[in-house]
């Protein structure tokens, strides 16, 4: 069953007399367990699409069926509940609450949980942080963590409510190579455990860790192809670390 089903989606912005057509007629199906990369030039509508998928924004036209649920008629409160229960968000800029510990940041979605099925939020948040390898950083504030670690906190937060899928808009855009590999290896792990992931990226190397690449241009999908030579981020991370260890050793003993 398709977990994401978009039909005839359009999103127009009207600024004065100018009408910007950010998405112009887009159909898309994403099945459970997929790992999708969305690529395309700047301004092609990738973020707009992600916002639509994430129920942060309502399309001007078209239907969006999410996990079997038609969102066309949903109001702001239903959207909030969908975001809370079905979607995990990861942003380029991490978007963690400052001066708030990693643990409390991860707990935040549970704070707004209305299903009542998520008992012991503290333990859940701890488990999620341990899952992303930050079990020893629970009480660290965002400004005490590296970019990669902050993004892992954000991923833990996205995972803590056990959502139907994870959306990530350029999650590695602010990260260096090592951190990018860390984050991608984390996404791959999650995906291997069955989680659906849709992410936006500008970098083909990053897209190579996913299973399917969609390319957008001018608010429409221009190509949609499976990844043939899929790379493993964990392996690349190991190789990268070894190489750098050698360089460091070489530099230390001239």
């Amino acid at each position: 069953m398709a977990i994401i089903e978009l039909r005839g989606i359009q999103r127009r912005y009207e600024i004065g007399d100018i009408v910007v057509r950010a998405i112009r007629g887009l159909d898309l199906d994403v099945e459970e367990g997929e790992f999708v990369a969305i690529m395309g030039p700047s301004g092609s509508g990738k973020s707009t699409l992600m916002n639509t998928l994430g129920c942060l924004d309502k399309p001007t036209e078209g239907t969006y069926v999410l996990d079997g649920l038609d969102t066309s008629a949903a109001g702001p409160d239903e959207f909030a509940d969908i975001r809370n229960g079905k979607i995990g968000f990861v942003f380029q800029g991490f978007n963690l609450l400052s001066r708030t510990s990693a643990l409390e940041n991860v707990e935040l979605p549970l704070f707004y949980d209305r299903s009542g099925s998520k008992a012991d939020p503290r333990a859940r948040a701890k488990a999620a942080l341990t899952d992303v390898g930050l079990g020893d950083r629970l009480d660290h504030m965002p400004n005490q963590l590296s970019g990669g670690q902050q993004q892992r906190v954000a991923i833990a937060r996205a995972m803590v409510n056990d959502p139907a899928f994870i959306l990530a808009d350029e999650p590695t855009g602010n990260l260096d190579t090592e951190m990018t590999l860390e984050v991608m290896s984390l996404f791959q792990q999650l995906n291997e455990r069955g989680k659906t992931v849709v992410m936006v990226t500008h970098e083909p190397e990053v897209a190579a860790y996913t299973k399917r690449v969609i390319t957008m241009r001018d608010g429409a999908i221009v190509s949609d192809a499976p990844v043939t030579e899929r790379r493993r981020a964990a392996v690349d991370l190991d190789a990268w670390k070894k190489r750098h260890a050698r360089i460091a050793v070489a530099e230390a003993s001239p």
Partner: peptide
């Protein structure tokens, strides 16, 4: 506020 909304805060919250 945006972050809170993105993780599911309703307007009333």
């Amino acid at each position: 506020i945006g972050i809170r909304m993105s993780v599911g805060a309703r307007r009333r919250d």
